[in-house]
Design a protein around this nucleic acid. Sequence first.
DNA 1: AACGTAACCAACCGCCACTCT
DNA 2: GAGAGTGGCGGTTGGTTACGT
Length: 294
Amino acid sequence: MENNERGCNFATQSEEEMDLRRGPWTIEEDLILVNYIATHGEGRWNSLARCAGLKRTGKSCRLRWLNYLRPDVRRGNITPEEQLLILELHSRWGNRWSKIAQHLPGRTDNEIKNYWRTRVQKHAKQLHCDVNSKMFKDSMRYVWMPRLAEKIQAAATGSGNTSNNSNSHPNLTADQKAPLEYYTHLHHASHSLNKYDFDGDSQNKKNFTPENSSTTTTTQVVSPVSDLTDYTFPANSSDFQSAPFQFEESLISPLGYFNHGLVEEKGWLDGDISENTWIMEDIWCFQQQFCNSI
DNA sequence: AACGTAACCAACCGCCACTCT
DNA sequence: GAGAGTGGCGGTTGGTTACGT
């Protein structure tokens, strides 16, 4: 018989011998786990499972606690603010779900991963492209994320006033405010493209195609966050004063996507319009702007 | 109402890194 | 240094629910 640091006795047994349970957790199991952790704390999951009398693996207990039972777990729909942050952080870190989750208080890596796989990959499918492709990433950055930011701003002001005043989002964390302000600015920039005088850069415009865009300045417009540094954005929106020009110079032309039949009207318009941020308005808007500017 | 499909999400699996003996 | 134990992470699966026909 073994005696561990938690003061409980148990024999070393294989999973078969212990007749471990699998599948959905029962209310009784949840109660046992919660009560045990409340008394003894978390960690040492294998011994915790044995000592609590749960016929579960330590891994299973840990997962259940972290993803469901923890008191600070947030439940319910992913908010637009959180969506924007997920998209931004994923573009930076890729499938580092745990790292991304650290910037979304109360959200678990599993939840974010599920969100990504169900919602985001669905959009990629609609575009007939891979979720990791440059085309999809650019579409996300220049269509979806600015629109999300605009949507958040509109909801915050409640009057369609979409100023970048961060004071209009008192409930957002700093992590959420920074990309919000950045992409709102991008959104404004995209809608202002045809207002700018591009003549001084006509050569650049003529040469601008999806094929060559990646070799020019495409990466300059991405949010000013180094892959090697922690997540930071400019402290205020005035730091983005030059964004419209950077935007025009580096943006991969949506025309390239639309003209190749990669976007189907069906699918983009299907479903809940409030959830479907990829709507024809965006497509026509971008088409119009680039027809005017080229 | 019945059936099929899509979407969602909890849970599991396998791998890797770290720690301890 | 080797091996076992453990925790953490990302990928995948399967059950349930929602929705469309």
